[in-house]
Design a protein around this nucleic acid. Structure first.
Lengths: 216, 216
DNA sequence: AGCCTTCAGATTGTATACAATATCCAGCAA
DNA sequence: TTGCTGGATATTGTATACAATCTGAAGGCT
């Protein structure tokens, strides 16, 4: 009823983020403001604001006066991101185990069911639902700073995933998701932390393997 | 020789951040762009960019079309931030224990010595050096995503600290700093994690205690 | 050749103009 | 009084103009 008009800068932000994460820009490709102006049909102002946010998100990098480019994530940094995520997701799961409400439980169950029902060939849908599941856990932790940090880290991971072209789930993924949910619903903090951390580690190992890096 | 001119938006960002963290704005105080324009003598453009960053940092909050205000941190959120920091600082210390270089070790030792030598009554200097010590540990972890996340969380904590008016160090602080450094230098990951987490918990307890007798 | 200088074109940083919303208060009706 | 309506005012969102800086190549010097 009182829908406020969508801001141009938000549209631009979403568009650019999706474009980066879908590989429509090459890693290290330079993004000129004027070029984007012509491409998107809006003025430089909202583009600059979107670029600013994306830079803080870690998806772009730039030096003042010299524009921005798509950030290149090194193998070392990818590894670093997963190390942090292992701990952070573990914390989120542990907190969710202790703090989740009935509504959280229902949402978690619903999201995971959807994920399990998704076609195993629809990579995009799987990624979307996997993301949603992890976000739901972070929400169920009822810890705002954690939620914000997790979202930030997720963006970086998304960039890693794209640049390393790891699209498929690990075979154990489904079972691990179930294990996490079970531990959370049972309010078993330590089990939740353990299973969530293991899940990240499993996936990280897959990514690292593809990168030709031996995991620590 | 190759000093690039300081950007106005950076100056504005630094100025506003310091002002917020020094209490020159009341919590929930509205920041009008035009007002800041007159106050700082620059145009709206760099002010808007600085405000955007501060909003993403969690120091300001705003709804589109309605400007921004200094974010009010509730007691619950303060507690939440410390819970996350406990884990994150623990991880940073553990990683630092395993990854620090000789240069890191020197810098850590130097910073802590400075902190110990600082006058116990100069709250500002103590805060600055305490911050520097914690940041050095995060740097010694050699994990860029972690460093970024820690910085983000630190900003929020700084806001909490200001709004709860906790300025003094806990008596055990000095000993705990030494214990952290010792564990890091000994490359004892678990001890580093434990001591760092304990340090955060000690301080968090102090903050929470003060929140119990004070309405924010 | 190799390196520096210089300058034109392109690009970003900042200021300002204009458009779209939101805020607030006077006035009125129930 | 309380609540609504309308419109003047103020504020934010976007576009554009202008200034400062960077880039890159042509031309001169050693």
């Amino acid at each position: 009823m009182f829908t406020r008009p969508t801001l141009i800068r938000e549209s631009v932000y979403d568009h650019l983020r999706d474009a980066i994460l879908n590989g429509e820009f090459q890693p290290a490709e330079r993004l000129g403001e004027v070029e984007l102006t012509e491409r998107l049909g809006v003025s430089r102002t909202p583009i600059r604001e979107a670029i600013g946010r994306l830079t803080q998100d870690g998806l772009l990098e730039g030096t003042p006066g010299r524009g921005v480019r798509v950030r290149v994530v090194s193998a070392v940094e990818a590894q670093s991101a997963y190390v942090v995520r292992e701990t952070l997701d573990g914390l989120a799961a542990a907190l969710a185990a202790s703090a989740h409400t009935d509504a959280d439980a229902g949402a978690l169950e619903a999201t995971l069911s959807e994920l399990e029902a998704a076609s195993s060939e629809d990579y995009r849908e799987q990624t979307r639902l996997d993301l949603a599941f992890h976000r739901r856990i972070a929400q169920a932790a009822h810890n705002l700073p954690l939620l914000d940090l997790a979202r930030d880290l997720e963006q970086r991971i998304a960039l890693v995933k794209h640049q390393t072209r790891i699209y498929n789930s690990h075979p154990q993924t489904a079972a691990q998701h179930r294990a996490i949910l079970k531990a959370v619903l049972a309010r078993d903090q330590e089990a939740a932390r353990r299973t969530a951390a293991l899940h990240v580690r499993t996936f990280a190992a897959l990514v690292m393997e593809n990168l030709g890096v031996q995991s620590v």
